[in-house]
Design a protein around this nucleic acid. Structure first.
Lengths: 245, 245
DNA sequence: GAGTGGTCTAGACCACGCT
DNA sequence: GCGTGGTCTAGACCACTCA
């Protein structure tokens, strides 16, 4: 508990380690108050700013949170948020899918698409379709749309290999974009079902819908990926101290 | 750019706002260096610790990162990590599923299960099955397993309503657990397919596999949820500055 | 050697929650 | 009124990078 001498570990880090240890082994329980800053100063013989630096570390990691005028408390971990690392064109074990561009067109957006993209019906959009293979077998069919912009040439190489959000960002000249994704099991369009060789008359696939959004939530692009069942898995891990939303 | 006077906004916060604004509007581009700490001190007429507090905020948010001896740089956002808020027994729009406990048994683990749970084959495990309804229609079938522990009574109320990770945590007397989840479209077991009224001979469903892990990655519980296609969707948003893994 | 970020001090004043 | 955390200062020494 006393601060280790002759150590290259910074003092603030030792404070953080000590407290996170106490939390992990259960001596400090969720909801409980941790020692006050001045107590920690005294215990470790360090200044308050240094103690605060350590507590800040724990706060970032989500172990604790503080209430002005009262104290700092151990956070109750949340198990309902999970983080997925989703790499387009790459599956769980890191193997790469072989993408094949099977169509690029400028079309007029039908109503449903215009709505998804936040455009007027009939507006011009670029549609492109990709079919990706894994081990010579078709694994995913992608259908992507982004507003047509004169003078924003889409290089075929890019369309073929680039991840969709990055493509959209470059095309719209935005520096920061976000992605919103929806996952479900649903029917693939007939042509996709055929190309993917989906069994059954309803052609169920794992569907990943991606909306690429600007910082102000304006939709910049929309796409849908139909994945062959079983071939495509997503793994995710809980982020117990996520603080977003 | 100059620090606002007569403002109740803390100085460090103003520094952070100014810089994040510059990043968002693209005047500071990913990979570029931001002004040095001493430059910011001078510009705002504040001390270095205060500037650092502001930069720390941006660092936490993932906008910038620093390189000792060189400077701080605008981070290139990542679009390949997304965060899902997954609430067991609750769907996208917040509606609750009505759970129904349809079986609890102590069984001896078959090989595949023993492997999932990291136990010896034949070890005793508690199996329970739940069927959840949405609008009177079956929506999800859950199959969960956790090691049988003498003297750790499982209250029916809990089994029926509690989220699985929380149940496991309480049962194993662990304070901190993690969840690893895998999502895919796959075949449901025959009994599940029948109860859910899945169409087609292969009975495809959206499958959510959950492993509940201790901090040391030991498996504490394993479960699988089979969701009726289309009824169940997961939405996720990108976390452009996630720093994990 | 000049400049950078990383760590740390020993103070200060404030708003807040309690009692 | 006392203890809490939130903000802020004006210094300090260090290790590091780069010219």
């Amino acid at each position: 508990m006393a601060r280790a001498r002759r150590s290259f570990v910074p003092a603030y880090y030792q404070v953080a380690e000590y407290l996170s240890g106490e939390i992990e082994n259960g001596r400090l329980k969720p909801g409980e108050a941790i020692p006050s800053e001045s107590q920690l100063c005294e215990r470790y013989g360090i200044s308050r700013m240094t103690v605060r630096q350590g507590l800040n570390l724990l706060g970032e990691a989500g172990y604790i949170h503080s209430v002005p005028g009262k104290g700092s408390y151990v956070t109750v971990p949340r198990l309902d948020t999970i983080v997925i690392e989703f790499q387009e064109g790459r599956i769980e074990d890191g193997r790469r899918l072989e993408p094949q561009l099977i169509g690029v067109e400028v079309i007029e957006a039908e109503d449903w698409l215009a709505q998804k993209l936040g455009m007027a019906p009939g507006a011009k959009v670029v549609e492109f379709r990709r079919l990706s293979h894994l081990d010579e077998k078709p694994a995913a069919y992608e259908l992507k749309y982004l507003p047509y912009r004169k003078g924003a040439p889409l290089v075929e190489r890019e369309i073929r290999y680039a991840a969709f959000p990055a493509l959209v960002a470059r095309c719209c000249e935005k520096h920061l974009v976000k992605v919103r994704m929806t996952l479900y099991t649903g029917a693939a369009p007939a042509d996709a079902a055929q190309l993917l060789g989906l069994p059954g008359e309803d052609g169920l696939a794992l569907v990943l819908e991606q909306s690429v959004l600007a910082q102000d939530d304006r939709v910049l692009g929309w796409g849908s990926t139909y994945c062959v069942p079983e071939a495509y898995r997503l793994t995710a891990e809980s982020d117990p101290f996520w603080k977003g939303i």
